[in-house]
C-alpha cells in the first residue's frame, strides 16, 4: 500500500516539476531540485520518517539499474561515432576523470571538509548507480555521494552551456563530452538541446567516465585518501 502511495506521489510531483520547468526554465527550478524539496516538505508536514519514504519509493530508485543497462542502446546505435572518435573520447575522458578527482580532492582539503565528506565527494562526477559503488569501495557514505552527484548534475547543467560558450567550443564531440563528463545524466539531458550528436557523445562520455572512475577507485583513490588528515 505504502509502496504504491509513495511511488505515485513521487511520479506525480516529478511530472508537475517537469511541467513547471518547461514553462519557467530557471536553473533553480530544475526538477531534480524542486521534486526532492517538495517531497521533503510533504513528508515533514505529514510526519512521515524519511526512512519510511525511502522504503516506500524503492521501486523508483530500483529503476536506476535497468536504466544503466539501457545505455547499451545509444552506444550500440552510435557505434560508428565511438569507433571514429575513440582516441579523442578516451583521452578527453581520462583527463576529465583525473581533473574531477584531483580538483575535488585539492579543494576539499583546502576547505578543510571532514574526511567523510572528502571521500564521499571524490566520485561525484559520475552517474549515481556507479558513484554509489565507487563510494562504497573507497569508504565513503553512499547517500552523501548521491547528494553530491545530484548537485554536480544540477550545477553542471547550469554552468555547462556558459563554459561551452565562454571557451567558444564549437565541435559537437567536445560539447557532448564536456557535458557528459561534467554533469553525467543531467548533462546528457542538456546535450539533447544542442543536438543528437552532442547527446550521443555525452552518453558515451558518461559511461566511459563511470568505467574509468571505477578503475581509479581501485587504484589511485585509495592512495590519495591515505593522506587525508584524520580529525
Amino acid at each position: 500500500m505504502k509502496l504504491i502511495l509513495f511511488t505515485l506521489i513521487t511520479i506525480f510531483i516529478y511530472m508537475l516539476a517537469k511541467r513547471a520547468y518547461k514553462k519557467w526554465p530557471f536553473p533553480f527550478l530544475h526538477p531534480l531540485l524542486i521534486s526532492p524539496l517538495a517531497i521533503i516538505l510533504l513528508i515533514t508536514a505529514a510526519n512521515v520518517p524519511a526512512a519510511e519514504y525511502l522504503e516506500g519509493s524503492k521501486w523508483i530508485s530500483h529503476l536506476l539499474g535497468p536504466a544503466t543497462v539501457a545505455f547499451a542502446i545509444p552506444i550500440y546505435k552510435h557505434m560508428h561515432l565511438l569507433k571514429k572518435y575513440l582516441r579523442n573520447i578516451i583521452l578527453s575522458i581520462t583527463t576529465g576523470t583525473l581533473v574531477a578527482i584531483f580538483s575535488s580532492f585539492a579543494l576539499s582539503l583546502f576547505m578543510h571538509l571532514s574526511p567523510d565528506l572528502i571521500v564521499s565527494i571524490l566520485p561525484r562526477s559520475i552517474t549515481t548507480p556507479i558513484a554509489i559503488e565507487v563510494s562504497k569501495e573507497i569508504g565513503g557514505l553512499p547517500a552523501l555521494t548521491t547528494v553530491f552527484v545530484i548537485f554536480t548534475g544540477v550545477i553542471g547543467g547550469i554552468i555547462g552551456p556558459s563554459a561551452i560558450k565562454w571557451l567558444s567550443i564549437t565541435s559537437p564531440v567536445a560539447r557532448g563530452l564536456a557535458l557528459g563528463m561534467g554533469a553525467h545524466g543531467v548533462g546528457t539531458n542538456k546535450a539533447r538541446e544542442y543536438g543528437e550528436q552532442e547527446a550521443t557523445f555525452s552518453t558515451l562520455a558518461m559511461i566511459l567516465a563511470a568505467w574509468i572512475t571505477m578503475f581509479w577507485g581501485n587504484s589511485l583513490i585509495p592512495l590519495m585518501t591515505r593522506i587525508i588528515p584524520q580529525m
Binding site: T10, I11, P31, I60, S61, A143, G185
Partner: peptide
C-alpha cells in the same frame, strides 16, 4: 531524472 529523486 525521476529515478534519482528518492535518493535525493
Amino acid at each position: 531524472l525521476l529515478f534519482f529523486i528518492p535518493s535525493a
